[in-house]
């Protein structure tokens, strides 16, 4: 169903996106265009609607208004799993691993839709099953070793240290083979050393998997260091966009974070 992507087509094009819960406007008139290979940050105070925007892009929420185009195709109204299969991977703000399953299985689940064999093959345990299951497992093991998780592969996911759980979640999202990766507060709860490691990891996967990345983050150090472009949301609306330097000097942004009056001081 996918046509070859024209290089000039933006990876993600969001126009006029809005979501209203009851009477509450969580997101209104959100516009954003991301070109291939960009690393874009989405910041804003708590409750600004960042995660809601993510949930609409990945299909968990149905937008009240607006259009979302991924590589030129509209994804509004598609089921979340269909959107994932088109090539949008994501992680969650509060880590959502399959906590009682092993690290290996966590990643093998993400490989499911290109497992290469059907349920019937699985029930019959035929040659097709054995071959593909072995390949799948080896692929997963290779993949885990890229992330230095191979020594944990038999471990139950919830027993991993916190930093490794974040890493596993990113690995799992990448196993879905996305073109666009959405990271929802990847640095939440990390100490400065772990944040440095995370920044290295993000640079590394971006090169290695040829990714376009959109990330939500509160850790300004991380955002300012690695993002090329930043969009700022406040009360569901875009209040600024630009390079890290522009954003740092934008009075509206300072106001949104620190309140009125602070802008004059800054």
């Amino acid at each position: 169903m996918m046509t070859p992507v024209n290089p000039s087509t933006p990876v993600l094009e969001v126009t006029g996106l809005a979501k209203i819960f009851g009477g509450l406007r969580a997101v209104s008139d959100f516009n954003m265009t991301i070109q291939k290979g960009e690393l874009v940050g989405l910041i804003g105070p708590n409750g600004a609607g960042k995660t809601t925007a993510f949930n609409m892009i990945t299909g968990l929420y149905f937008p009240t208004h607006g259009e979302i185009k991924f590589e030129g195709t509209s994804v509004v109204g598609l089921q979340p799993h269909e959107i994932t299969r088109m090539g949008i991977g994501r992680t969650f703000q509060n880590i959502r691993l399959f906590s009682n399953l092993s690290v290996l299985d966590n990643v093998r689940i993400a490989y499911h839709f290109h497992s290469g064999y059907s349920l019937t093959d699985g029930i019959l345990r035929n040659a097709n099953y054995s071959k593909n299951e072995r390949e799948l497992t080896e692929k997963t093991q290779d993949f885990l070793s890229i992330f230095h998780l191979n020594k944990f592969e038999g471990e139950i996911a919830k027993n991993l240290p916190y930093g490794q759980q974040r890493r596993l979640e990113i690995a799992r999202a990448l196993a879905c083979n996305p073109h666009l990766l959405l990271l929802d507060e990847p640095a939440a709860g990390m100490n400065p050393k772990e944040i440095t490691e995370l920044m290295d990891l993000i640079h590394f996967i971006r090169e290695k998997f040829d990714l376009t990345i959109l990330l939500i983050e509160h850790q300004m150090r991380l955002v300012m260091d690695i993002c090329e472009k930043i969009t700022v949301l406040d009360f569901g609306e875009v209040i600024a966009r630009g390079t890290p330097v522009e954003i740092q000097n934008n009075p509206k942004v300072v106001e949104a974070y620190l309140g009125k009056g602070a802008a004059n001081v800054a």
């Binding site: 990945t58 299909g59 968990l60 089921q79 979340p80 799993h81 994932t84 299969r85 991977g89 994501r90 969650f92 959502r96 691993l97 399959f98 689940i109 993400a110 499911h112 839709f113 799992r172 999202a173 879905c176």
Partner: peptide, 8 residues
């Protein structure tokens, strides 16, 4: 939710 995000 995570299952959905994994394409299931």
């Amino acid at each position: 939710t995570a299952a959905k995000a994994m394409g299931i």
